[in-house]
Write a protein that binds this DNA or RNA. Structure first.
Lengths: 260, 260
DNA sequence: CGAGTTCGTCCCGTATTGCGGGACAAGCTC
DNA sequence: GAGCTTGTCCCGCAATACGGGACGAACTCG
């Protein structure tokens, strides 16, 4: 219809859109999927068959309908989850958990988002829940801002083509210019913070973990409830995280990102 | 080439195959992907562009090459990972960890595989590592066999069209008939075990978690090193797991699977 | 117990669209 | 600076993905 066709493959695109439906639908029927994707039933059936053939979807045990497949889960575990990295960072996490008493976690940068790769949950009754594998928008979290601060301004600009950034809470940074300023502050300070920018009432601090294998893009982050996250408390928290990172031999190399 | 084309969509299939490459390659280049998939460079480029447009791949921060995208990680977290389920099962896991002193985990069935959705790691110096999100072949694990035992024989047959089953270790059950016998034994005993069938030197026991929301297909599993996993030890372990499951209000309903 | 509905599956004809080949610019290495 | 590799884009052709429709089976409701 358009003068020049979009540069995407339509059938692959519908397949990706269908997989995304698994986020909100535990089970999908051929008819239901066809309706949601605005394609013919026969097309949805072919797409689902292709997904099943590769393990990206499975037939529901009941015999009717389809569900997300194990291959989707397997591929959703990038290299940051690998056993070697987790084993190496285990003492760092244990040390940080003991030192801070708060929920601590390691996060990796994936485009404009971060993924929680591992962590320890606080034993405080009032604590932040640990959700390994969850993703968040990088610019709304302390760990994300820290990892972004290790990129060049040009690289950050490439990640955010728009000047406006999506708001997660009322306190989220919503302009690219403000984000770049914040990243400068993070570089000067050596650690990043978040003051309710990804979740209301949740404050956080993050420090870099240099020398980590997975593309050298891991951060150590700790999230605390509002009342334990004042400005001074966050500074102390960041100090403890820095000590844990250093104790684990993960001394922070200067601001150079050496490509392996 | 064949008389009648396979019932799969070729371009979607190559996209899925490309995503699978991210399992072994942290970064992919257009040329490299084209070579691995045996397609033209231009085709690989179009596939990658489509994946990037939907967030299933990202351009590497270095500007050269591509990497797995955040959407892949997001979609790889099925409903079993949802916060509500994890919150509800938290006391069960804590109780089981305390009772057994071993690494305990909750697992969900996904076709012929299981996924570890949550867990607690043992504090014993010699312990089994907890890997949330990892998948295993169901017939090689205690949790998998337990979940399979809650299906009908017909459903199990549908999951395993072949009589031979892939071997993970020398002790893995490799015939469907033997698996069905084992599942009968599991049903009679009330719990399942694995004697080095998924990893040499690792024994395990698993019990059902009824009433769990995610398609009522969750199990509580504990893995121990060989020397703590004798027949009697495993029976005691299973008893403790059953007590933890019951304490959490997850009494085991009889062998009926009520579809929601 | 039977009629109506909804489901998954399969086939077929058409023209849309995904494919390979090739060309071009930019960046890196030596 | 020459030679390599990289990502990107265009173009023409025919393979192929699409929609429509038909069929059988299963579930539901009266």
């Amino acid at each position: 219809m358009s003068v020049h066709r979009d540069y995407t493959i339509e059938s692959l695109d519908t397949g990706l859109r269908l997989m995304r439906l698994f986020l909100t639908h535990d089970r999908l029927t051929v008819t239901g999927a066809a309706h949601e994707l605005r394609v013919a039933r026969s097309t949805a059936h072919r797409v689902l068959s292709t997904l099943v053939a590769r393990g990206f979807a499975i037939r529901d045990v009941s015999g009717r309908g389809y569900a997300a497949g194990p291959e989707l889960v397997r591929i959703g575990r990038p290299a940051g989850f690998d056993a070697a990295t987790r084993t190496r960072l285990r003492p760092v996490l244990d040390d940080a958990a003991r030192r801070t008493g708060e929920t601590v976690q390691t996060v990796a940068l994936l485009g404009d988002q971060i993924v929680i790769t591992d962590g320890r949950e606080s034993w405080n009754p009032v604590r932040v829940m640990l959700e390994v594998g969850r993703t968040h928008l990088a610019h709304s979290t302390s760990g994300g801002k820290l990892l972004l601060s290790r990129l060049t301004t040009e690289q950050v600009r490439a990640l955010y083509p728009d000047e406006r950034l999506p708001a997660v809470t009322a306190d989220t940074i919503t302009s690219r210019a403000a984000l770049l300023d914040e990243l400068d502050a993070v570089r000067a300070r050596g650690y990043a913070t978040s003051l309710g920018e990804s979740h209301p009432g949740m404050h956080a601090a993050a420090v870099p973990l240099a020398g980590s294998s997975w593309r050298d893009r891991l951060a150590l982050m700790s999230c605390v409830p509002l009342d334990r996250g004042g400005r001074d408390a966050l500074a102390r928290l960041a100090g403890n995280l820095l000590r844990s990172a250093a104790a684990g031999g993960h001394t922070v190399t200067a601001h150079g990102n050496g490509e392996a």
